[in-house]
């Protein structure tokens, strides 16, 4: 199954090359070069995973993560960070990030995390659907 990815980074050259490599691995990639552009994409599209740079001009990765989660809590966010520290990782996880990867990222590791994100999102969406169905069954009197 094709993974739908939103890749967010202010380095345009990074977006170009990552997008090409991920597309060659069968993923469907959309790119955004700012937090604002990413949030617009989140409003209009559905994604299995969002790969988000931690340090960006204007709204940084942590603020963007909070805004994404506020819009759609089922979205799975993988943070890209210049220096992966335990402290940063714990902070990101507390705010709802699924995982984090240190730059320069190993594409095989990132791909594995994206697949995990997709699986986790499917479980969350299935749970949501089940709850909706239960709610309908208990409130409707068929």
């Amino acid at each position: 199954m094709t993974e739908k990815i939103l890749l967010v980074d202010d380095e345009k050259d990074f977006l170009t090359v990552m997008s090409e490599r991920m597309t060659a691995r069968g993923m469907q990639v959309t790119t955004a070069d700012s937090a604002q552009a990413a949030l617009q994409e989140v409003e209009s599209g559905t994604y299995d995973a969002i790969v988000l740079d931690l340090k960006m001009p204007g709204m940084d990765g942590i603020e963007t993560l909070k805004a994404i989660k506020a819009r759609n809590p089922t979205l799975q966010v993988i943070l890209l960070t210049g220096h992966a520290t335990l402290e940063k990782g714990v902070e990101a996880m507390k705010l709802g990030a699924m995982d984090f990867v240190e730059k320069p990222a190993d594409l095989n590791v990132l791909t594995e995390k994206i697949k995990n994100a997709q699986a986790r999102k499917m479980v969350l969406v299935a749970k949501q659907t089940e709850q909706k169905l239960k709610s309908i069954l208990t409130t409707k009197g068929w």
Binding site: E11, F14, V17, M18, R21, G82, H83, P104, A105, L107
Partner: peptide, 11 residues
């Protein structure tokens, strides 16, 4: 520097 290295690595 990390950003430049990341782009070099991916290319």
């Amino acid at each position: 520097l990390k950003n430049a290295l990341a782009i070099i690595k991916e290319n």
